[in-house]
């Protein structure tokens, strides 16, 4: 279960990362306007970063209730 989730996160990080690279290449080619490339970054960069972090973070515990002061 846990590894499955990690795999999914890694896949998502890779996909969005690949999209960022593809966007960069197309922009350098001149096929994609700058605005399009920026739109790709705005959507993909947060997802890529968070998924990457969630993938490489330490072992996961069960969820807990919020901090309530003691």
């Amino acid at each position: 279960m846990m590894t499955k989730k990690k795999d999914m996160l890694r896949a998502l990080a890779l996909i969005t990362g690949a999209l960022l690279v593809i966007g960069f290449v197309l922009w350098q080619n001149g096929t994609l306007p700058l605005v399009g490339y920026e739109a790709i970054i705005v959507v993909c960069f947060p997802i890529c970063v968070i998924c990457l972090f969630l993938w490489w973070m330490a072992r996961e515990h069960g969820e807990d209730i919020p901090f309530i002061g003691y």
């Binding site: 972090f53 969630l54 490489w56 973070m57 330490a58 072992r59 996961e60 515990h61 069960g62 969820e63 807990d64 209730i65 919020p66």
Partner: peptide, 9 residues
């Protein structure tokens, strides 16, 4: 980014 993380219940 390396710390163990979850969503609160």
């Amino acid at each position: 980014s390396f710390k163990s993380t979850w969503i609160p219940a």
